[in-house]
């Protein structure tokens, strides 16, 4: 795919077209349009129960699309299973890390590479993860559950990187972390992004997210109410009042 029209269109990595999802009779997402281009970092903001997590789950395939379409790397993706989407290049850092606490750090990383066969590539990626997160390498044979929240976050990110994804989805990475750690984590996210991996971050902490993202979307009760470059959103009056707080 990727037909060239007169206006040269960039190839889209992920696209949601008029996506609507339901939980039984209740509509959670309504007519959501979103795009992510390769190499970008996009954040999704919104308050509680705005549908942020559901959007992530829909992209992943844990929640099914009721209406609308989703495309990933040019292919129609909303009918694929979660495993198939992971295979095609998605990876996720779930809310609250969700690392396997009874498995060692090494095994957690190996689980990230579950769908891969190339031993050499896996080793390369693991070395990269060690480079980014030396602490993870230190604790390689410890059980995941013995690490602190921040360390677990690093492990979760490393695990996501192990599948050599094209797109990393992150669900509230700042939750439960000390502010200093939050900065660290987002720095690393930026680093990863600069390597060419697209990042889609769902965040409550709008300030931090917008400070490093390229673009952002704002959800309210399942609808996209604002979108645009991060800088614009930072200066937007409505945003300031609702999410960024008066200075």
């Amino acid at each position: 795919m990727g037909e060239r029209s007169n206006v040269a269109e960039r190839e889209k990595l992920l696209e949601l077209k008029k996506v609507t999802t339901h939980y039984g009779p209740i509509r959670v997402l309504t007519d959501v349009d979103m795009v992510i281009y390769p190499g970008e970092m996009v954040c999704l903001l919104g308050g509680n129960a705005s549908g942020k997590s559901t959007t992530l789950k829909t992209i992943l395939g844990i929640v099914k699309v009721s209406e609308g379409e989703m495309y990933f790397r040019g292919e129609r993706a909303d009918q694929l299973s979660t495993a198939e989407r992971i295979e095609r290049g998605m990876a996720v850092v779930p809310e609250n890390r969700r690392i396997f606490s009874k498995m060692t750090v090494l095994e957690n990383l190996e689980m990230g590479a579950y769908l891969r066969d190339d031993k050499k590539g896996i080793k390369e990626d693991m070395d990269y993860v060690f480079e980014l997160f030396p602490r993870v390498k230190e604790r390689l044979h410890q059980k995941g559950g013995t690490m602190s929240g921040g360390e677990q976050q690093m492990l979760a990110m490393g695990r996501a990187l192990m599948s050599r994804p094209k797109l990393i989805l992150m669900d509230e990475p700042s939750m439960g972390l000390a502010p200093l750690f939050v900065e660290r984590i987002f720095e690393i996210i930026k680093q990863v992004n600069e390597r060419g991996i697209s990042v889609f971050v769902v965040e409550q902490n709008a300030n931090v997210a917008l400070s490093i993202a390229d673009r952002g979307y704002v959800l309210q009760t399942g609808e996209v109410v604002l979108s645009g470059p991060a800088k614009e959103l930072l200066n937007n009056e409505a945003m300031k009042k609702a999410y960024l707080g008066e200075v």
Binding site: K102, G112, Y114, L115
Partner: peptide
């Protein structure tokens, strides 16, 4: 086998790793 252990601990996250 690792997938089995992972699924026993946290099935949803295992699914997110591509485990069926």
């Amino acid at each position: 086998g690792k997938a089995m252990r992972a699924s026993a601990q946290d099935a949803e996250t295992a699914q997110m790793m591509g485990v069926s």
